[in-house]
Design a protein around this nucleic acid. Structure first.
Lengths: 184, 184
DNA sequence: AGCAAAGTAGACAGACCAGTCTACCTAGAG
DNA sequence: CTCTAGGTAGACTGGTCTGTCTACTTTGCT
């Protein structure tokens, strides 16, 4: 399955949606960027919303793989969690960074249930990784700790975008360190 | 100044933009909700963007006044900070809550510098309140603590909206407590 | 070679939206 | 009473967007 055109479309869509936000990118721009005819879009996806679903699902998978690679590489769970904030820092340092793509998507998909579910599932997946590391760290309440770390992570990415600075992410990393120390 | 129509417009705009997001609300809907003619909008504001600026500036002022009232009411700075998270909980418990209106605005105003500045200024104002309380609390690094608390606050509001639950806000309040204890 | 599946270019329809224009109305100050 | 500033209704313009249609071409498999 997944024809050549379909793949080029999801890649171009992922790039453009991240750079400008779902509702600021038109179909014509996507097909131009993908180097593909408009009809190839509608032969592969029923609607723009379905293309977005595919693009963001792909992005979510990539992000989760990056996190899994990181968690597997690092033995110490505390280090793994702190490195997740370093990863956030790397995302935020990219030129044109506009905040977490999934939070942005949530804002632009108020009425599209499929897309909102995708955002929720993505955040739950990250929560799961935090919780697993928190549990291995020996936290008394790993679930709550994961919820706190996720809020820090999301807030830090958002504030970094608003201020155009990496300071929120560095501060959040430090806060994660304090929360981990207090969690046993 | 500020004619009757202008006031009704900013109020209606504030309500609708909070409920649906800036770009999901059309001019026609705003004037209908305000009970005012479309030309009254353009006699009072040069463009939709300027109406939005007025509406969000008003909202920012109200939020800051609520925070100031709270900080003035409570003597203990730690309690004041924790009560700011209770305030976040009250916001998130409102029916139709869609996350912090200013984070939503940031997502919908990528190309409008005036609106982006407004978001940044609003977040800086909240940061200032956190920092003042952190300083009164005796924190060693009040600026960094304020940055951490703001990230927690923003992330908690965002995650509460995504999950449709108050749990992120309760967890963030607990995290704030831990950070405050560790900050001296 | 031949055929089916996939892709192409671009015109087009239909919806929606910001912002303009016109002609009329109303309320309050002098 | 009259004048004026502010308000009104709604048609209209120009632009943009998603999604469709058509007739044609390429590609890859057998």
């Amino acid at each position: 399955m997944s024809s050549r055109a379909s793949q080029r479309l999801t890649e171009a869509a992922s790039r453009l949606f991240q750079a400008k936000g779902l509702s600021s990118v038109g179909i014509n721009e996507v097909v131009r960027e993908a180097g593909v005819a408009k009809m190839s879009l509608y032969n592969n996806f029923p609607s723009k919303s379905d293309l977005a679903k595919a693009a963001y699902a792909q992005l979510s998978k990539e992000r989760q793989q990056a996190i899994e690679a990181l968690v597997k590489k690092v033995a110490d769970p505390e280090t793994a969690i702190l490195e997740m904030f370093d990863l956030a820092g790397r995302l935020a340092a990219r030129p044109g960074f506009r905040g977490c793509a999934f939070i942005d998507l949530a804002a632009h998909s108020a009425q599209d249930i499929g897309l909102r579910d995708l955002v929720r599932d993505h955040k739950r997946a990250i929560h799961r990784h935090f919780e697993e590391s928190a549990r291995r760290h020996g936290a008394v309440r790993p679930r709550q700790l994961a919820t706190q770390l996720l809020a820090l992570w999301d807030g830090a990415l958002t504030d970094a975008a608003i201020e155009g600075s990496l300071e929120p992410i560095h501060a959040a990393r430090e806060a994660a360190h304090v929360l981990l120390a207090a969690s046993k």
